[in-house]
């Protein structure tokens, strides 16, 4: 049999590609039949759509170091010295930066001097989830939490461009050396992935309220089920006027502010 060099090269290169592509596509994603079965935790706090109220009438911004500190400590959030690479789950901004779309003229003193507590809004229609090309960011249908899978994130930062609230932080540096006190019960992150507030999913599954809610002595943070008309959070929202950040974008944030 004679084949031309051209044909030989073509056939070998195509078959090499196929050989290389085959196993790499299946790698690690084959479904494993586990001998056991999985179920929900017995103490898990349940809700259809978790949400939070930040009552700025009660939060005077003086002790926010406490709730932010606890959050960042238990979640091993690094403290990066350069502001432009900072990682933040729970953070503060003045009124005009937290609500840049609202009136900045003749702002009342009460609002002007406030530092607003900000976190991921766990939007009902989250643009970050829409953007993510790997489903590393996703919304859980069962409880509405917008979660991240740090094992899957490729660090493309499309979600950061898509989130209009600045809730997401990219690990520009290796975060480990910047974690002040490591909590061994929670992982740190790797360099090159995005991270954000997870509404304390790891606490909810064992029956605990989010750490910031538990820490706040003034009762300024209320956490509950937005889908349950009898929940405390729904009662508060029914009674007091409230706002959400950038509602005009249609993301339907699950974090509400009272002031």
């Amino acid at each position: 049999m004679t084949i031309s060099r051209r044909k030989f090269l073509k056939t070998t290169s195509v078959s090499c590609l196929a050989l290389a592509a085959g196993p790499s596509l299946g790698h690690g994603y084959e479904l494993l039949e586990l001998p056991g079965r999985m179920s929900k935790g017995p103490e898990e706090l349940k809700a259809k759509r978790w949400g939070m109220v930040v009552d700025m009438r009660k939060c005077d911004g003086r002790c926010t170091e406490d709730c932010i500190g606890v959050c960042h400590e238990i979640h091993n959030v690094p403290f990066i010295p350069e502001a432009e690479h900072q990682v933040m789950w729970l953070f503060q901004e003045p009124y005009e930066n937290a609500f840049p779309d609202r009136s900045r003229e003749l702002v009342s003193k009460v609002l002007k001097n406030r530092r607003f507590l900000l976190l991921c809004n766990h939007c009902d229609d989250p643009p970050c989830v829409r953007a993510c090309p790997t489903q590393a960011t996703f919304k859980r249908e069962k409880d509405g939490i917008v979660m991240m899978d740090y094992h899957r994130c490729i660090g493309c930062r499309f979600c950061m461009a898509a989130c209009p609230y600045g809730s997401r932080s990219f690990n520009f540096r290796d975060p480990r050396p910047y974690v002040r006190k490591i909590n061994p019960a929670f992982p740190t992150r790797r360099r090159g992935v995005v991270e954000k507030c997870n509404f304390c999913q790891e606490r909810l599954e064992v029956g605990k309220m989010p750490a910031c809610v538990e820490t706040c002595k003034k009762g300024a943070l209320v956490f509950g089920d937005l889908d349950d008309p009898d929940s405390e959070i729904r009662r508060i929202l029914a009674e007091s006027p409230h706002v959400r950040r950038k509602p005009e974008l249609g993301t339907r944030p699950s974090v509400f502010y009272l002031f």
């Binding site: 953007a131 090309p133 490729i154 493309c156 499309f158």
Partner: peptide
């Protein structure tokens, strides 16, 4: 250029492995 931009280049195959028709970046890849 995309490859140089991502934080986790070794995981780039996660895009074709988890096809996400809702993401515009997926279509580009």
């Amino acid at each position: 250029f995309i490859f140089s931009d991502v934080g986790m280049p070794m995981r780039i195959l996660n895009v074709p492995l988890n096809p996400t028709p809702g993401s515009m970046l997926f279509y580009d890849t």
